[in-house]
Amino acid sequence: MNLFEYTRAETLDAAMSAATQDGAILAGGTNLLDLMKIGVISPTRLIDITRLPLHDIEEHDGGLLIGAMVRNADLARHPVILSRFPAVAEALLSGASAQLRNAASTGGNIMQQTRCSYFQDPLSPCNRREPGSGCAAIGGETRNHAILGWTEACIATHPSDLCVALAAYDAVVEIAGPDGLREVPMESFHPLPDANDAGPAPLQSDEIITHIRLPDPGGMARNARYVKLRERTSFAFAIVSAAAALEIQDGRIVQARLALGGVAARPWRARAAEKALAGQPPTEEAFARAADLALEGAAPSGDNRAKITLARRIAIRALIRAAAGTPDRLPALPASVFEGDCNG
């Protein structure tokens, strides 16, 4: 690890003015420090924002305003999250491990980097790490790579579970910068790659995420689920995942939300599928048609064609579970495929 300067910011202004082009913001550190240790990034200055007053969760017009420093573990157990945004709780509790969730922050979860193994290997060409160097993932081990929104420049996926649920709930990212505040919808916060590069950085070096705003889920509060496919039951990233929320009245879907994880460089909001579900009865047939729309345009970026089938099926599963209603208690294995079907 290179030598670097460490500053702890006591105010947001101090944090922003301490920011430099080759500095980095330190929150939970669960991804940043790993990347520094393996030599993927070498910031010359770390600005510790853990003391900033961004630790609160406030109720706000039927929704929530979540401070960027709220730890994943605290957010997952917040009573309003559990009662009105259960897919967020399931997504959080299916991610990482208990120890990591105790340290990881909400803003940091959004800012975490892809786990593409070629991004994580400084010896491999990577347009995301080193613009213009190429993409070593193409032609390599691509089981965890994109099937939507990728280009020849980058086939990485965003690894967050939380962001998938946030995108489904129309969450907004609030960002402070030297010129004031700006807001970006969660679903478009992470840039997609274009023909030549992995896309611009989502934040300027002197910008800091301050809050995540979750709007009122209205009639979707108790019909929302997150489902995650993975080979072990904890501490594993999704092969594919899906968040679904439905408002159902009189046997018809009033509004639907669907977002996919593990498929693209951002949580993949399936708006066409949502539109098609509106007005339909909540049946498996309707969900299957919606899932087809969600995967429209999907293509393997390597030896990962099976992910298209899996993503389609996990979307259907999430919609089925959402239609069945959120259980009163979180399942013992949050977001697991086996929840409800297995004593384990």
Binding site: R115, S117, Y118, D121, L123, S124, A136, G139, G140, E141, E231, R232, T233, S234, F235, A236, F237, L333, G344
Partner: peptide
């Protein structure tokens, strides 16, 4: 392994999976 370079793509306990209690 990446067969082109011979380097591993999962040489850590996040990528190399062993069972957890919940398994």
């Amino acid at each position: 392994h990446d067969v082109r370079t011979g380097r591993f793509t999962n040489a850590d306990l996040a990528g190399y999976h062993i069972p957890v209690n919940a398994d």
